[in-house]
Simulated assay, not measured.
Amino acid sequence: MSTPRLFSLSRKEGWNQYVNTPPRQRPEKLTLAQIAALSEDAREDYNNLRHDWHANFGIIQTPQLAAIHGELDQIVASNQQDGDRIRSAAVIDALPGLGKTTIANQYGRTYDRQQRRRLGPVTDEGHERVPVFRVGLTSNTTLRTLNRMICEFYGHPARDRANAAALASHALDCVLSCETRLGIIDDIHFIDLDRKDGLAVSNHLKWLANELPVTFIYVGVGLAERRFFADGLTGKNTILAQTARRWTRLGVDPFHLTSDQGRQHWRKLIKATERQLVLAEHRPGMLTDLAGYLFERTSGHIGSYFTLLMRGCYRAIRTETEALNRDVLDQVRLDEASEQARQQLAAALTRGTLSTETEAAS
């Protein structure tokens, strides 16, 4: 019987589990007759195994993911300066539901594995090697809490009782001792520049970039719209303008149907995910035939797309339909943004102003 792998990426132990746990094994695809022949307990275990698989079958190599990983490779490789040099940072900036956190985490996992393979699990000084740290900001992050989050990732014993300055020193010691080279800070859109605490955190990000021999990958929502990268800022935002000079913004776009290439990418995504389904009655091409419908339901947002499939697979198993079709998927309620956009997209697909067919196919 499969159980979820419960861990937090904001702790070293959880991150290590994420990095080192081998991929799940795809369950065997049984026929309807074979499923019917199972005992009640065996059928429950088999269905639970499939639910776990459909929720966690792995990351699809989308064009968006591949493009940003290529940019990150370039930024990280060019940041191999000595400790007295300032390193540039990458900022993955996109709307919700486009996979930006997944892209950052996946890159961090690959980088972590590469560093451990090349350099070993222990530093020359005998400390545990921790190539990557990852933390996520909250809506009330202060200077002290940011430092504490970094210390908590490493499990530093003084993380709960030191002041902000001491925690910053401890964080620096952890990074240097463990020879960390990549730092992922998620949800930086929670930094409120209209608050004193927010400006202090923004200042501290600059200090971290100056003092730590680390390439930072920041992740946030709608940062460009909030003028995180605005040039010519003055007054209390001057520090942000200075920091933004060192940040390379990497945007993540939703899938679209406005070009032949966009339509090809959308259909390739559907084909790639369809191969992962473990449903007795599902046949290749059933999802591809619903390409327009799937876009209508999800607006081309990969997060909404995978939610639709995961919930649809659960319903297909529970109702014994054992296939993803429109009737099954129509019973799945999605996020409100997708539901609100659905009617307009459906009209465009009906009128033919949007199409999933490529020019070669048509």
Results as ranks from 00 to 15, higher is better:
Val175His: 02
Arg113Leu: 14
Ser169Ile: 11
Ile217Ser: 07
Arg134Leu: 11
Glu128Arg: 09
Arg109Ala: 10
Ile150Phe: 03
Leu208Pro: 01
Arg129Asp: 06
Val214Met: 12
Asp192Cys: 00
Ile191His: 04
Gln106Leu: 06
Asp194Lys: 13
His189Pro: 09
Gly220Thr: 12
Gln106Trp: 06
Val219Gln: 02
Gly183Glu: 03
Gly220Ile: 10
Glu211Met: 08
Thr145His: 06
Leu193Thr: 06
Pro213Ile: 00
Ser177Val: 00
Thr141Met: 09
Arg181Ile: 00
Arg144Phe: 04
Ile184Asp: 05
Ser202Cys: 14
Val122Thr: 12
Gly120Leu: 04
Phe133Leu: 02
Leu143Cys: 03
Ser139Gln: 10
Val175Pro: 04
Asn140Asp: 14
Ser139Arg: 12
Gly222Asp: 13
Tyr154Gln: 06
Ala164Ile: 03
Leu199Phe: 02
Leu146Gly: 13
Asn203His: 05
His156Cys: 05
Arg113Gly: 15
Tyr154Ala: 00
Ser202Asp: 14
Gly198Ala: 08
Gly108Gln: 07
Ala158Phe: 10
Ile191Gln: 07
Ile184Ser: 08
Gly183Asp: 01
Leu182Met: 02
Ala209Cys: 07
Cys174Lys: 08
Ile185Met: 08
Gly183Leu: 03
Gly120Ala: 06
Leu212Trp: 15
Lys196Trp: 07
Thr110Asn: 13
Gly136Thr: 11
Val175Thr: 07
His170Asp: 15
Arg161His: 14
Ser169Glu: 12
Ile150Gly: 11
Gln115Glu: 15
Ser177Lys: 10
Asp194Cys: 02
Asp186Ile: 06
Gly136Glu: 13
Leu208Gly: 07
Leu199Gln: 13
Val135Asn: 12
Phe190Lys: 10
Pro131Arg: 04
Val219Thr: 04
Arg116Gly: 05
Ala209Phe: 00
Val214Phe: 05
Ala162Gln: 13
Leu199Val: 04
Thr141Pro: 11
Ser139Trp: 02
His170Leu: 12
Ala165Asp: 15
Ala162Glu: 15
Arg134Pro: 00
Tyr154Ile: 03
Arg109Met: 13
Val214Gln: 01
Trp207Asp: 13
Arg117Lys: 15
Thr145Asp: 13
Val201Leu: 09
Phe190Asp: 07
Arg109Gly: 06
Arg116Cys: 04
Leu119Arg: 14
Ile191Gly: 02
Tyr154His: 08
Lys196Leu: 11
Arg113Ser: 03
Ser139Ala: 11
Leu212Phe: 13
Thr138Asp: 10
Lys206Asn: 06
Val221Gly: 01
Ala164His: 06
Arg117Gln: 14
Pro131Trp: 00
Met149Pro: 00
Asp197Cys: 02
Thr142Tyr: 01
Thr215Glu: 04
Gly155Met: 02
Thr215Gly: 08
Thr142Pro: 03
Asp160His: 15
Tyr111Cys: 06
His156Gln: 06
Glu211Cys: 05
Leu193Met: 11
Leu172Ile: 08
Cys151Asn: 02
Pro157Phe: 10
Ala200Asn: 13
Asn163Val: 09
Gly126Val: 00
Gly120Ile: 07
Leu172Gln: 15
Thr138Ala: 12
Leu119Asn: 13
Ala209Met: 15
Gly126Tyr: 07
Leu172Lys: 15
Gln114Ala: 14
Val214Tyr: 10
Leu205Trp: 03
Arg195Asp: 11
Arg116Asn: 09
Gly220Ser: 04
Gly220Glu: 04
Val201Ser: 08
Thr141Leu: 04
Lys206Ser: 10
Val219Cys: 09
